[in-house]
Design a binder for these strands. Sequence first.
DNA 1: TATTGTTATACTCTATAACTATA
DNA 2: TATAGTTATAGAGTATAACAATA
Lengths: 141, 141
Amino acid sequence: MQEMSEDARLVDALGETAFRTMGALTGIAADAGLSLTQLRVLAILRDRRLRIGDLAEYLGLEKSTMTGLVARASAKGLLAREPNAEDARAVDVVLTPAGHDVARSLEAAIRYALLPLTDRLPAADRRALGALLERMLSYHL
Amino acid sequence: MQEMSEDARLVDALGETAFRTMGALTGIAADAGLSLTQLRVLAILRDRRLRIGDLAEYLGLEKSTMTGLVARASAKGLLAREPNAEDARAVDVVLTPAGHDVARSLEAAIRYALLPLTDRLPAADRRALGALLERMLSYHL
DNA sequence: TATTGTTATACTCTATAACTATA
DNA sequence: TATAGTTATAGAGTATAACAATA
């Protein structure tokens, strides 16, 4: 077997980390009766009010997809549709109080679910890893 | 706004990294006319022959879900179903030559797609990040 | 009897195309 | 005319439950 380059190892590690992390997040969402996309919507709307189209763009989805996602989450009482003040065609999406509660408990569940992945790393390594990831993310785009 | 703890920042960075990485992988899969799950199947089967049930367990899916995934990928000529030598009830899944070709080109596309995320990080940081991620992944499970 | 996988069914996610209302 | 969002439709992914074949 050929030796892997440092870069190839980083790419593989990034991919594996992503799959494990997403797996944990998917499980948490499923426990709450939500899809991963709906978990993302809740997380995004915690500190924002977005129009349907902006939400779709943020998630990389079509507007028609957002219509359904918002409809299902609204039916669960997690978010609400409100008219946009400046454009009568537009619809703002906001979290309901119940949605905020769920978002808060999801955040806690995520921290807890990722513990097995992080807690055996020495504190110094955790700090170093967090700093490196933040630096990497700050470059992108 | 309250200061975030180091651990909270690590968890957030892990989540953000996961979403960006999965986004890139989803795009690559879509360009090849595949879902993210099918991309995973191809990657897994590159160096293995697995039974339907083992594949399902590996991916955290139900066997009935695997039946459909394998059927669709088989219809595309990417993998084949073969009888298991030891158990007449079982079905082995293997990559076809075409499947191996696609898997190989997907691997290259993934490296390329993750470049924007990694290439502006200094070489020393890339090495350090890869090593930290590998250490973290080695602990889990 | 227990296990492997398939089938039938239902729901969610997703996109494309055609449409309505507003700008 | 162009844009924001919805509706209709269709395909893929997913799970549950019932089933056939084999162990």
